[in-house]
Design a protein around this nucleic acid. Structure first.
Lengths: 161, 161
DNA sequence: CACAACTTAGTTGTGCACAACTCACTGGGG
DNA sequence: CCCCAGTGAGTTGTGCACAACTAAGTTGTG
C-alpha cells in the first residue's frame, strides 16, 4: 500500500490469541470474497447456462484452443475428479466435444463445438460488468492479482514441500 | 503496466477481449488462492478433525460464545442449507450442542461443549503456520484483507441492488 | 518380447455452497 | 380469538473440490 521498507513481518512478535483473531479475518475475507465473486458470476452467467467453474474452463478453451483434460487441470489447478464430470456436463450441453487422442490413448482432448465457440461472443460483455461491480480500480485489480498469485504460489510450495 | 498515476480506472477504455483475459486472471487468482488456502488448512486441521468451514464456525463460537444458527450465518455469510448439516457433524463429533431457544422456539442456539472449547488451545498454533506459509508480510495481509473486504461488500451490494 | 513403473481419465465417497422448498413458530391486524 | 405474513431452521437436489481408488494405455528395462 505505502512505502513499507521493512521486509520483516515479525509475526513472531504477535501473540497467539491475536493471530487467531487475525486468521479469522483473513480466512474469512478470502473465503467470503471468493464466494461473493462466485455469486455475482452465478447471476451474470445464468443466461449463458454456465456455472462459475464451467466459465473458467471455457475461458481456457477460448484462449488456448483444444487441449487435454490434464492441460486444463494444470492451468486451473483442478484434478480429473473435478474436471471429468464438469466436462461431461459441458458435453451434454453441446458446448464441447471429448475425444480420445489418437497419439496417446490415455488422454482425452477437449474441443469446442461451434456452439461453444460462439458462446464467447455473448461472454464478452460479462467481465466489464463484474470488474465494475467490484468497485476496484484497474490498478487495485492488478495489485490484488499479484498478491494472490504470490500467496497461492507460496501455499502451493509449502504444501508440496 | 508502469507508473500509471491515474486514480481513474477507465475500464471503458479497455477492449472487451482484453477484459476477458484480465477477467480470466482475476477470477482464477481468487478462486485458486481461496482453494490453496483451503488446501493448507485441510492439512493443518487434520489433527483437529476439522474442515476449513468447520474451523471458521468454531472461530466464531470461540470468539463470540453461544449464538443462534442465524447469527453464525450472518457472520460467515452462510445460510441454513450449509450450516445445518455442518453443525450436525460438529455435534456428532462432540464439539457443539444444539438446543432450541426457550424464548423463541424457531431458533436453535449453538453452544460449545467442553471438548469444543478445549480444542481452541490446540488451534492456537495453526494460524502462525498459515500466515508464515503465505510468505506475506503482516502489512500485506492487512492490505489484502482490506481490499477483499471492499470487494465483497461491493459485490454484495451489487447483487442485493 | 515381457513386465513393472508410470501416466491419464474416470469413479466413488465426503463435505461445502446455494437455490428452492417445507415446516414450525411468532407476532400483528381483523 | 383467528388468520396470515414473516422468520428461523431444516431438507432436497445440483454442482464443485478433493482424497483415494480403479482401469486403461504408455514407456523403459531386462
Amino acid at each position: 500500500m505505502t512505502t513499507a521498507p521493512s521486509p520483516a513481518p515479525d509475526l513472531s512478535a504477535v501473540p497467539d490469541a491475536e493471530l487467531l483473531r487475525l486468521d479469522h479475518q483473513v480466512c474469512f475475507s478470502l473465503h467470503a470474497a471468493s464466494r461473493a465473486f462466485g455469486g455475482y458470476y452465478r447471476q451474470a452467467l445464468k443466461d449463458l447456462g454456465l456455472t462459475y467453474s464451467q466459465y473458467l474452463v471455457m475461458l481456457v478453451l477460448w484462449e488456448q484452443g483444444p487441449q487435454s483434460v490434464k492441460a486444463i487441470g494444470e492451468r486451473l489447478h483442478l484434478d480429473s475428479g473435478t474436471l471429468s464430470p464438469l466436462l461431461k456436463r459441458l458435453e451434454t450441453a453441446g458446448l464441447v466435444r471429448r475425444e480420445r487422442s489418437r497419439e496417446d490413448e490415455r488422454s482425452v482432448v477437449i474441443d469446442l463445438t461451434d456452439e461453444g465457440a460462439g458462446l464467447r461472443e455473448r461472454a464478452l460483455s460479462v467481465p466489464r460488468g463484474v470488474l465494475a461491480a467490484t468497485g476496484l480500480s484497474l490498478e487495485e485489480v492488478l495489485g490484488l492479482q499479484e498478491v494472490l498469485g504470490r500467496l497461492t504460489g507460496a501455499l502451493g510450495e509449502s504444501a508440496a514441500g
